[in-house]
Design a protein around this nucleic acid. Structure first.
Lengths: 365, 365
DNA sequence: CTGAAAGCGCTAACAA
DNA sequence: TTGTTAGCGCTTTCAG
C-alpha cells in the first residue's frame, strides 16, 4: 500500500485544472480535446501533456448539457433473451463504441407497457438516435420519436421521414434458397411457422414464403402455416398444433431459429425424427444453430451487417457534415445447409415402389 | 395530419416554462418534482398540473451535472452472447429501471482490451455504481473502480472495501446434488469441464466439484478435469480432449450450460449417445436447457436472485440514508433433473453378469 | 414555505 | 490563434 499523494478519492479533475497546469485558457483545452485545428501545436502539446499527467477526461454530462448531444444511441430489440439479439447488440456496441457512442438497450418483450417505457427512457436520456430492431413496426415507437425529432433507423418498414432511415432485408433470397433446397430433396408439402403476425416483418417473411412456394410451382396450404411468436415455447406450441392436423407436411420452415429449436424439441418429445420424419429450416443462423441436434439448416441473416448498417445510418444522420447516407444495399440472406433437412419421409419406400420417379431423378443430381 | 399549434419539433420544455405556467419559481418546481416535502400542497398541485400540460420531464444531463449523480448503473458481463447473461441483464434492467436507474452494459469477452474499454466507458459516463458479473475477478476492474470511489458489487470474491459488496453463490449445494444424483445412478467415473481457470469463480466451482466428490467417497481423476471456456466451442473442444483419453469417464459435469451443449454436440458428432454413453450435467439452467436434445439435467442458479441482489446492494450503497445492506443470504443453487443423466454405460450388461451388485442395489432405490 | 442566485463542467460565440 | 464570457437546465444554499 504505497502512500498516495492524493487521498484515496480522485481529486475531481476538471478542465480548469488542466488549463492551469498547461498554462492556457480553458477554451484552449476544450479546443484541443475536441481536435479543433486552430490550436498552435506547441499549446496543444502542453495541453495533452497535462491531460496525461492529470489523467483527465471530460465530463460527459457537462458536455452533453451544453452541446445538446448525449452521444448516446438507443437500441430497442424485441427480446433480449432471444440469442439473435445479443449477437446483434454485440456488433452494434462494437461499432457504436468505436465511434464514441454509448448505447442504451431496451427490450420490448412484445409488450406495449414495456415498449412505452423504453421510448420514454430513451427520450429522457436524450439519445441522439435510436435503432428500432424489433422487426415490427409499432406506430407507437414511430410517432414518439418523430415528435421528438430524433433520428431513427427501422428494419423493413419505417416512417417516411428524412430523420428516419429504413434497412431493408432481402428475406426472399434466403427463403427461396431454402424452399428450392427442400424441393430438390423432394418435398412438396412444406409448412411455415411465422412470427407474431401483428409484426410487419413477420408478415413480410410469410409473404416471401408464399411467393417463393409459388415461384417453384407449389401452393401454400394455409393449414400448414401457423403462427408462432419467435420463442422456444412458441415453436414448440406451433409444432404441437401441426401435429394435431389430419395431414402433416414433410418439411417446415421457421421464421427464426428459436422457433426451429422449439420445433426440434417438440419432435423429440413426440419421438419423431429430424430430418427423417420432418425436415426443418430455421432463420437467422444464430451461433447455436450449429450446435443443435442435429445441427440446424437455416437461413443466415448477418446481424453484423444489420448492426453496422444501423449504426452507420444513424450516425451519418447525426453529423450533417458527414457523408450523406450512401446507397442502401439490402441486407442479404442465404441458406446454410446443415443436418435438419433430408428426403421427405417415406421417400425411400415410395422410390422402391417406383411411385416417384421424379424424386428419384432429382436425387440423382 | 392535424395542424399542430407548435411546429413539428417539440418546443424545448424546460423548468422555466413550467415555473412560469404554474406561477412559481423554478426552485419550487424543482422541489415539487423531487418530492421535497416542504412544498405547499396548493403550489405543488399547480406545478404538477403545468408539468402535465406541458408534458415536461427534467433534463437528465443537467440533473446529473449538478447533482453529481448520473442514475446510471454499469453492468459488466463476460459475454453477452452466452444466454445466461441476457437473462441476467433482463432481470437487472427490470429492477434498475423500476428504481429509476438506467443501465450501461459492457461485455468483456474475456479480453483485457475490451475490459479496459468497459471500465473507461463506465468511468467516463460517471456511473453511480457498477455490477461486475463476470464471474471472475480481474484485479484490473477492482482497482480502477476503487480509485474512482465507485460502489461495486462482485460475485464470489470482491475487494475488501466498504464501497464494495460481494454476492456469494452457494455452488456447493447444487454441485453436490448433481454428484449425488450421478452416484446414485451408479456413476463412479465423473469428469468435469471447468470454465477458464484464470477466473476465480471457475476455480471455485472446480474446487466445489472436487470436494463434493470426496464427500461421497470418490476421488477426482485429474485427467478427467479439463478446462473449458464457458462457450459452445469450448465445450466441444473439451469433450474432444476427453474422448482422446485412454479411459473415459461415464459422466461429465460442466461448469455452465453452454459448455454442456457443446459437449452434447460433440457427442452427437461422435455418434455417442446421451445419456446412454455419457451422462451430462450443466450449470446455470438457462431457458434453453429445457430444449436441448435430450433436455439437459443442470444445476439452477437463479439469475433473478443474482440480479435482484446486485441492484439492491448497489443502490443501498448509493443512498446512504437507505437501509444498510441487509444480511447477505447466499444465492442458492439446486439440481434440475431432466434427461441427460442415466445409468452408466454398460451398467445393464455388467448387471447381467452380476459384476456390480452394488449398482444393482442402488438401482433398486 | 418560497424565491433569488450561485454554480455543476463544458462549449461556443465574441473579442482581442 | 487565444482568452473571456455567457449560458446549457437543473439543484441547492441562503435570505426573506
Amino acid at each position: 500500500m504505497k502512500r498516495a499523494p492524493k487521498a484515496g478519492v480522485a481529486p475531481k479533475m476538471d478542465i480548469r485544472n488542466v488549463a492551469s497546469r498547461a498554462r492556457v485558457s480553458i477554451a484552449t483545452v476544450s479546443r484541443t480535446i475536441n481536435h479543433v485545428p486552430t490550436v498552435a501545436p506547441a499549446l496543444a502539446a502542453r495541453v495533452w501533456k497535462a491531460v496525461e499527467e492529470l489523467n483527465y477526461f471530460p465530463n460527459t454530462q457537462a458536455r452533453a448539457l451544453v452541446s445538446g448531444r448525449s452521444r448516446l444511441l438507443g437500441l430497442i430489440v424485441s427480446e433480449i433473451t432471444n440469442p439473435f439479439f445479443p449477437e446483434l447488440i454485440q456488433e452494434f456496441e462494437n461499432v457504436a463504441v468505436e465511434r464514441g457512442y454509448e448505447i442504451l438497450i431496451g427490450s420490448t418483450n412484445y409488450d406495449v407497457k414495456k415498449t412505452e417505457s423504453c421510448v420514454r427512457r430513451m427520450l429522457e436520456r436524450k439519445v441522439d438516435g435510436v435503432a428500432i430492431m424489433t422487426f415490427g413496426i409499432e406506430e407507437l415507437l414511430l410517432d414518439r420519436f418523430a415528435a421528438g425529432d430524433i433520428p431513427t433507423v427501422f428494419i423493413d418498414l419505417g416512417p417516411n421521414n428524412p430523420r428516419s432511415t429504413t434497412l431493408v432485408v432481402d428475406y426472399r433470397q434466403g427463403i427461396y434458397e431454402g424452399i428450392q433446397h427442400l424441393a430438390v430433396l423432394g418435398h412438396r408439402k412444406i409448412g411455415f411457422i411465422s412470427g407474431p403476425l401483428k409484426m410487419r416483418s413477420a408478415q413480410t417473411r410469410k409473404a416471401a414464403f408464399i411467393d417463393c412456394l409459388r415461384a417453384i410451382g407449389l401452393t401454400a396450404d394455409s393449414a400448414w402455416m401457423v403462427e408462432g411468436d419467435h420463442t422456444l415455447d412458441g415453436g414448440r406450441d406451433a409444432m404441437q398444433r401441426i401435429l394435431a392436423l389430419p395431414e402433416w407436411p414433410t418439411a417446415i420452415m421457421c421464421s427464426n431459429d428459436m422457433t426451429a429449436i422449439g420445433v426440434q424439441h417438440e419432435l423429440f418429445e413426440a419421438k419423431l425424427r429430424v430430418p427423417d420424419d420432418f425436415s426443418l429450416i430455421g432463420f437467422d443462423d444464430i451461433h447455436l444453430a450449429e450446435y443443435t441436434i442435429p445441427p440446424l439448416t437455416t437461413v443466415r441473416m448477418s446481424c453484423k451487417d444489420l448492426a453496422y448498417a444501423a449504426v452507420t445510418d444513424l450516425i451519418s444522420n447525426l453529423d450533417p457534415e458527414g457523408t450523406p447516407p450512401p446507397s442502401k444495399p439490402s441486407i442479404p440472406t442465404h441458406l446454410i445447409v446443415r443436418q435438419t433437412t433430408g428426403l421427405p419421409r417415406n421417400a425411400l419406400s415410395d422410390l422402391a415402389h417406383g411411385k416417384k420417379s421424379k424424386a428419384r431423378a432429382e436425387l440423382a443430381k
